[in-house]
Simulated assay, not measured.
Amino acid sequence: MVGHARGGISTRRPSGPAMIAGLDAATIIAALVAVALSGLAKGGFAGVGMLATPVLAMVMSPVQAASILLPILALQDLVSITSYRRAVAWPVVWKLVPGAALGILTGYLFAASLPQAFMALALGVISVVFGTRGFVRSSRDTGPGKAGSRVGGIIFGFISGLTSMIAHAGAPPFQMYVLPQKLSKDLFIGTTIIFFAMMNYTKIIPYIVLGQLDLSTLWASALLAPWAVASGLAGLWIVRRVNPKTFEKVIFGLLVAVGLKLIVDGLIGMALF
């Protein structure tokens, strides 16, 4: 999770190039799994990417994990945009962007003091309820979608920007706003890719200001770049072969799974608070 601390790197494990380049097998495995998860997310399985930061944080500090993953996410965004640049619901994006920008700014200004455990717990509960409801309804609801309101876009965009700034965890609020609109599979994927690409590139500036994108972190990200591209392409290949109705159920299922993970994280964090 993002914080104002300049160091933030666990002293138990090597950092920078050594951390990825061969001195720590556990870190290498965690990094490869985390990047693969973010690749699947960029391919269209929005939500599963939220697991990337927690996986990498098992072997290093959450600050270092989030910092290493940001350049990876930005690179994978470029790979995904080339495939879905023409399939974007721009009205949806523009309703979300103002709130997202405000959320990123709030995350930057209050990164060290935000009650992250409480946020994780609340977001997790909402995600599980919404995902379960959507999964059940998707099997029998064939009616048209309903356009999201501008106010709703600002609210969900804000939550998405805030949680994305803290731990690259902005998918659930985005899905809560967009899924009821019942976009086609390609439009949903393209809109997801563009929206999060805009957020990830915006987040680079506050990450640099907070001192989290130093040369050591960037070098570790660069070493993972080939795997990041391959994972992103694999995600695109897989999602194109999934039935749209099945895809919708998978997204709702991922929302529930990620929500449960957030609930656990929140409860653990509150217990240690």
Rank of each mutant, 00 (worst) to 15 (best):
A5P: 00
G7I: 12
I9F: 08
T11K: 14
R13L: 08
S15L: 05
G16H: 11
A21Y: 03
A26P: 01
I29L: 14
A30F: 11
A34H: 03
V35G: 06
S38D: 08
S38K: 10
G43L: 12
G47L: 06
T53V: 14
V59A: 07
S61I: 09
S61G: 15
P62Y: 06
A65I: 01
L69F: 06
P71N: 14
I72D: 01
L73H: 02
L75H: 06
D77A: 13
L78F: 11
S80H: 11
I81Q: 12
Y84L: 05
V92E: 00
V93L: 01
W94D: 04
K95G: 02
V97T: 06
P98H: 12
A100T: 02
A100P: 00
L105P: 00
Y108H: 10
F110M: 13
S113I: 15
A117M: 07
L121V: 04
G124A: 10
V125Y: 06
I126R: 01
S127P: 12
S127G: 10
V128G: 08
V129E: 03
V129M: 11
V129C: 06
R133W: 03
R133A: 12
R133T: 14
G134D: 04
F135W: 14
V136W: 10
R137M: 13
R137I: 08
P144K: 15
K146R: 13
K146M: 04
S149M: 13
V151G: 07
F156K: 03
G157Q: 07
G157L: 03
L162Q: 11
S164I: 01
M165K: 11
H168V: 09
A169N: 07
A171Q: 04
P173N: 01
P173E: 01
Y177W: 06
V178L: 04
K182P: 01
K182G: 02
S184V: 10
S184H: 10
G190V: 06
T191C: 06
T191E: 02
T191R: 02
F196M: 09
M198R: 12
Y201W: 15
Y201K: 11
Y201A: 09
Y201G: 07
K203E: 03
I205M: 10
P206Y: 06
Y207R: 12
Y207D: 06
L218G: 07
W219D: 00
S221Q: 09
S221K: 10
A222N: 04
L224A: 08
P226I: 14
W227P: 02
A230N: 13
S231Y: 08
V239S: 11
R240V: 04
K249P: 01
F252P: 00
L254N: 02
A257Q: 05
V258E: 02
V258N: 03
I263V: 15
V264D: 03
D265H: 03
M270P: 00
F273H: 13
